[in-house]
């Protein structure tokens, strides 16, 4: 990528950012995609992959390269982390997020000045068993954040999905829609119905009637749901991934020991596909082979072509 185009972008971005800062002061804070922080991102990489090291080191290194948590979380904001705690499995089985990583992520949000951090998921198994067996309730509360389960219908509101192709309206988690900052925190897994589960698929846990999506058209619905609220930050927990019997497991696991952070959920999902082998071809998956990523790209939710994305690899330790 040429230096001149970068410079041009930066300048334009800066002016745009300044204008939007003024506007945002008056406007509702919930329109997060207009937030000025985006403007500073122009020189930052779009996707950072951290390797080697323990979960804390990986996240530290990755976040440092993408501009620090301060780029996303401002003082006094409410941060919502959409984690994956869908199943009553232990952390070693890699069906739910890594507890140490979640703990570090929450602390980073608080260090950046977050007023309160909430961790949400609409679990598939009984939420009490999911929260306790995954160990995530303990680390969340120890880190001073709240952990919520979407088992009560009152936490949802019915919204129209204007950009949706298959799904025109859905009951979606209010807190996630209204949060100042939304962090999508998926764990990559093999998934029998959708081949893989990644960042886009993780947002399915913001919906009340998840089974309904299976009935309509799962891949298109996943993309449609993602048009509602774009996450400000995607943190992919690829420390240990589930490669068979997904999404519930238990199955075979692999330890890529990576953390990926990005502002573009489609790009990070496109990158994440390569972690898995396509059983039909025997080669790693290509992004376009996963239909929900393709559908999301078609809805202009992000960049599927990794050559058009600024990717940076860093070392945790």
């Amino acid at each position: 990528m040429g230096d001149s185009s970068n410079l041009k972008l930066t300048r334009r971005g800066f002016i745009k950012g300044a204008a939007v800062t003024l506007a945002a002061a008056n406007a509702l804070s919930s329109y997060s995609w207009f937030r000025p922080s985006q403007a500073f991102g122009a020189t930052e990489p779009d996707l950072v992959i951290a390797e080697k090291g323990n979960p804390t080191q990986l996240l530290n290194a990755a976040m440092a390269s993408i501009g620090g948590m301060g780029r996303f979380v401002k003082k006094g904001q409410r941060v919502v982390i959409k984690a994956n705690i869908a199943w009553a499995r232990t952390p070693e089985q890699a069906c739910t997020n890594n507890p140490e990583l979640l703990s570090r992520l929450i602390k980073m949000c608080y260090d950046a000045g977050a007023k309160r951090v909430a961790v949400w998921d609409h679990t598939c198994d009984n939420y009490q068993f999911c929260f306790s067996r995954s160990g995530l309730k303990k680390v969340t509360q120890d880190a001073g954040a709240d952990i919520f389960s979407g088992h009560g219908r009152n936490v949802y509101k019915t919204v129209e999905i204007p950009k949706g192709k298959a799904l025109k309206s859905a009951e979606v988690n209010k807190d996630i829609l209204d949060a100042d900052v939304l962090i999508n925190f998926p764990i990559p897994k093999q998934h029998f119905a959708t081949e893989l589960t990644l960042g886009l698929k993780n947002m399915m846990g913001t919906v009340w009637d998840m089974e309904l999506l299976h009935k309509i058209d799962l891949h298109q619905c996943i993309a449609d749901i993602n048009t509602l609220r774009k996450p400000d930050l995607v943190v992919v927990d690829a420390i240990r991934i589930l490669t068979t019997n997904g999404p519930k497991g238990p199955g075979k696991t692999e330890d890529p020991n990576q953390v990926m952070v990005s502002t573009d959920v489609v790009a990070v999902d496109a990158y994440g596909t390569a972690l898995f082998k396509n059983p039909k071809t025997g080669n790693p998956y290509k992004p376009a082979e996963i239909r929900f990523i393709k559908n999301a790209y078609d809805l202009k939710l992000g960049e599927i072509n990794l050559s058009k994305v600024r990717v940076k690899k860093v070392q945790g330790a």
Partner: peptide, 10 residues
Amino acid sequence: QNPVILSTTP
């Protein structure tokens, strides 16, 4: 609303 979120029980 934040941080107190009360959920209905099934």
